[in-house]
Design a protein around this nucleic acid. Structure first.
Lengths: 338, 338
DNA sequence: CTGAAAGCGCTTACAG
DNA sequence: CTGAAAGCGCTTACAG
């Protein structure tokens, strides 16, 4: 177990100062080519690896970004994480992951990640942060980059990247309408979540535009889970006047809904057409394959990372970026049968 | 944007040395109670947060662990990550995440994460590392903790935690046999993956124990993906003598298999019983709900983290830990119909 | 129980 | 283009 070589070792081997080695590594163009070669050789011979802890302390940068998830288990996040990871590692940054409930359970403060120099910035995929937490984030001792992805904070000052929730929702409703449906229900996400609220609002607006009647009971809300879909299915089954189509606020909800319906011997789309939102991996392979609104999750992640990184480099205008969505028609939707 | 307070600031406010502040924070019992109170007060007044970069440099510890995934998109990993995260944050460690293909695509070396002081150790969930990579890991300049979770390296010197793959597989086959099936196929994971190899071997062994005939074509292999399941379904459909039950090496494969079968108007379990392995979130809600072998993924993650942390504290005996699995009977399996 | 001082391994003005 | 030197913010023997 020999000691890891340091800059000093490289300098000694190359016969130059540590300053020169450091420059060769971080800004090669300012050093003479012959010197560069000596250093490169010394690095090779010694097997030198920079010590990031030292660099981080000196540069006052952690060279890592925290990604905050509401829930590690939701498959919706995977492609977003991948997008973030791609953009981050291209710039030499690492990706730290934490889940909101985790952080709170451990008694840590979210802002600590920024304050204690563990992360240079953070990407928040959780729209459920309390106003207090958002407040501390906004007033963080030195204001470090915080960007919201998918989610955002109403009236907040943080930049965000998200999909066309409004247009996607309207397209979904319009599509169901064009199939011949007039009785359309919506299974919304959790109350108080801006994202889900936006989809619900858009749903309401489009129903009005199309002059469709909406019975109050056709608007059911739960959370993001499979189980919320299951419960909504029970609700649907119990209705006297059942909607012939249901627009779910997420694919995950749609899975739970269809699953429970199927268990009770109802058929999708024969008995009811179902649409989701997200287009996660499995949607194409669900039974039946799920019609949905596709979000470009990888791009969502890449964009979020880019905003944080740009901000760190001081070239940010704190934008809100809205990414396009695509209507995907599969077998969970058809014309109404009666 | 005022400067973040440092230990120095706290020391000045409390009227003690930085050494005393440091001790109060890391090892309170060695400082006098009255001093402790002065320091605690100064910390409160100043809003002091430790600078981890400085501590990391000084202690030669990154206080973070890298988790290496083959693929960010596979929902199998989510609960494991959660388990890891729980154990890690309880000890003040952060969780760094990278995917194997990502790391390679960016031209980084896996061992760099350890060598450049970014992580103190690593948990590997990828059984597909090349022997070269494993070799460099084994010979890492200073040998830092590396533990495999779910996966492992044959003849490798790394500790690992995994499930009873052998017993789980045998239980699955036995269960299908007890239902009355004698023609049982296996959709294996990628060739060269030890985990999938272990399940395949156990499958073969149990078939032999039960004295069941196994036609060569009943052993099909793919990878972990939904798509591998889809392809296997095509294979199954094309068979002259179709097995009446299929044991899939993962739930994800089973989903792809059932999905494609369903698309081609075959019914599960009427036309063929299907079992998975893993019991991921969705399995219970798939259509039909999937019979499978449940792994305790959260515990797998917690245990992996514990091994790494113990190792870091020098109290490790580099164990291989095998966790129990549970047979879950759902609707994707039944007796053969003919 | 407490303090003075060294040092972890880098980077970066500053001077030449 | 290069080097000497200071310093990022901690921790930890060492001495008392």
């Amino acid at each position: 177990m020999q000691k890891t070589p340091t800059l000093q070792d490289v300098a000694r081997i190359a016969g130059v100062s540590t300053a020169t080695v450091s420059r060769t590594l971080s800004n090669p163009k300012v050093v003479h080519e012959s010197t560069r070669e000596k250093v490169a050789n010394a690095v090779r011979v010694s097997g030198y690896r920079i010590n990031r802890a030292a660099r981080n302390l000196r540069t006052q940068r952690a060279h890592s970004i925290l990604v905050l998830l509401p829930d590690l288990a939701n498959p919706f996040f995977s492609a977003i994480l991948e997008g973030i990871s791609i953009s981050l590692s291209a710039k030499g940054y690492s990706m730290l992951i934490a889940s909101t409930k985790q952080v709170h359970a451990s008694g840590e403060q979210l802002v600590d990640y920024l304050d204690d120099a563990r992360a240079d910035g953070m990407i928040v995929l959780d729209g459920g942060l309390t106003p207090e937490v958002v407040g501390t984030l906004e007033n963080a001792s030195d204001s470090k980059p915080v960007v919201f992805a998918c989610e955002w904070i109403e009236n907040g000052k943080f930049p965000s990247v998200r999909s066309e929730n409004r247009r996607g929702t309207k397209a979904a409703v319009k599509y169901l309408y064009d199939l011949g449906h007039t009785k359309i229900a919506h299974i919304a996400g959790p109350e108080g979540n801006v994202l889900m609220h936006a989809r619900k609002d858009a749903f309401l607006a489009e129903m009005k535009t199309l002059q469709l009647e909406l019975k109050p009971e056709w608007l059911v809300s739960g959370d993001f889970s499979l189980d919320a879909g299951r419960i909504a299915a029970e609700t649907w089954i119990a209705m006297h006047d059942r909607p012939t189509a249901v627009f779910c606020a997420s694919d995950q909800i749609a899975f739970g809904f269809i699953s429970e319906l199927s268990r009770c011997d109802f058929k999708v789309p024969k008995d009811v057409s179902v649409m989701g939102f997200d287009d996660i991996e499995l949607s194409e392979r669900f039974i039946p394959p799920l019609s949905t609104i596709q979000q470009d999750r990888t791009r969502l992640g890449k964009t979020a990372a880019k905003i944080v990184l740009d901000w760190l480099e001081g070239k940010s205008d704190n934008p809100t970026i809205i990414l396009p969505v695509t209507l995907i028609k599969r077998e969970s939707t058809s014309g109404p049968s009666n």
